[in-house]
């Protein structure tokens, strides 16, 4: 059980780190949103699942509460994170930030 939690935590930290790195390395807003959202969400899933496993392994009211609350946090995170990113991308586009190095931009022709 401990090994499982270690692995989950390590994977979570790895993907979170990837997200932060993507934030630093990518050239423009949209690609940064790609990296940040996907990686941090995915990494958070692993990290929080690690906590959930820990909580259930503890058992009892205490551990169960920990696990359920962590799961709720995860659920809300999963619901809000992509939506927030979408809102940011949309806001950035309407605010006049063009995607860098874009090969095609259908939104410009489509509706503005």
């Amino acid at each position: 059980m401990n090994a499982l939690i270690y692995i989950l935590l390590a994977v979570g930290a790895l993907f979170n780190g990837l997200g932060a790195l993507a934030l630093l390395r990518f050239p423009d807003v949209y690609t940064r949103i790609h990296g940040a959202t996907k990686c941090t969400t995915f990494g958070s899933i692993f990290s929080i699942v690690g906590v959930v496993v820990y909580g259930f392994s503890q058992g009892g009211g205490e551990g169960g509460t920990l696990a359920v609350h962590a799961l709720l946090a995860l659920f809300f995170l999963l619901l809000t994170n992509p939506t927030g990113s979408h809102a940011l991308a949309r806001g950035a586009y309407r605010g006049g930030i063009k995607p860098a190095q874009a090969v095609v931009d259908r939104l410009e022709k489509g509706k503005r």
Binding site: F76, T83, H86, A87, R90
Partner: peptide, 16 residues
């Protein structure tokens, strides 16, 4: 805001 945001806001309202 877009329809996505509005729907999620609707979904989140009761939990919040």
């Amino acid at each position: 805001m877009s329809v996505v945001v509005r729907t999620v806001a609707r979904l989140l309202l009761a939990p919040v």
